[in-house]
């Protein structure tokens, strides 16, 4: 808990309290009112300083006083007072008079504030400012982790969208295509062979028919064979008188005998 201390009431006190609370509403004050001019001032201020410095809840001491003549401000240049301020273990802000006043306490205090209002500003941070800093930091924090996650999501999506993962059937497709291709080739190959065999057969048949003597016989030729051994005769010298012959004609055969050569 913040606890700031003021050693003088009045307008100076109000300036410090109002401004400090406006900046940091949770700030706590312990106010000790003392004489700020005249013969008792120095000893009262020194005593108040001692009290506050000894208080473990005190984080900061503000010695404040409103404006006044140089004589009025003399206690704040007192050697004993300056030494007491110097001796404080608690940080001390001096806020005496106006901007132009420079009592010696200003040179001993940890911080010299130009006015009580300025002392309030230096004593506590501005809540709104701090909140906006925290909000900004939180915002960046949030954005950083969201961006990271988005980036990882993109990396994962990229991997998942690769065809091998996105369309695993393509893996089978190539195999299926290969099988179909082979099957096709086998089918075509067999078909060709059957076709070829068919045409071979026709060809052979045609040759066979071409070789058959039937066509020749039909044109009026005859085949003459010796009856005894069936030899086809090409030369009259192959026969003798009285040999029995077979004469094959297109429509049948007849028997013949050699009567002359």
């Amino acid at each position: 808990m913040d606890r700031r201390q003021v050693t003088r009431a009045s307008a100076a006190e109000r300036d410090v309290l109002t401004n400090a609370r406006r900046r940091w509403p949770a700030v706590e004050f312990r106010v000790i009112n003392v004489a700020v001019q005249g013969p008792g001032a120095v000893s009262q201020i020194i005593e108040a300083l001692g009290t506050l410095d000894a208080d473990p809840d005190t984080d900061l001491i503000i010695v404040a006083r409103g404006g006044g003549s140089v004589e009025d401000l003399l206690p704040f240049s007192d050697e004993a007072l300056c030494r007491a301020v110097f001796a404080c273990r608690t940080p001390v802000i001096s806020a005496i008079g106006h901007e132009t006043d420079t009592p010696l306490i200003d040179f001993v205090a940890d911080v010299r504030a130009s006015t009580p209002t300025d002392a309030a500003k230096r004593a506590v941070p501005d809540l709104a400012e701090e909140l906006s800093l925290i909000a900004a930091a939180r915002n960046r924090l949030d954005r950083a982790i969201v961006n990271r996650l988005d980036r990882e999501q993109q990396r994962l999506d990229a991997l998942r969208s690769r065809p091998v993962l996105a369309q695993p059937t393509t893996m089978l497709d190539t195999h299926a295509t290969q099988v179909a291709g082979l099957r096709d080739r086998a089918g075509r190959n067999l078909g060709h062979r059957v076709d070829r065999a068919g045409s071979d057969l026709l060809h052979t048949l045609a040759r066979l028919r071409g070789l058959s003597p039937l066509a020749t016989l039909e044109r009026g030729y005859a085949v003459v064979q010796r009856r005894t051994d069936g030899a086809v005769l090409r030369d009259p010298a192959e026969t003798a008188i009285d040999d029995d012959l077979r004469v094959r004609l297109a429509l049948g055969e007849l028997a013949a005998r050699v009567i002359a050569s």
Binding site: L149, E152, Q153, L156, L159, R160, V164, L165, P168, M171
Partner: peptide, 16 residues
């Protein structure tokens, strides 16, 4: 391999 890939993608997605 593909089955393994799907499983790994699933793990990544679950993590995210």
């Amino acid at each position: 391999l593909w089955e393994r890939g799907e499983k790994l993608a699933e793990i990544c997605q679950r993590w995210l």
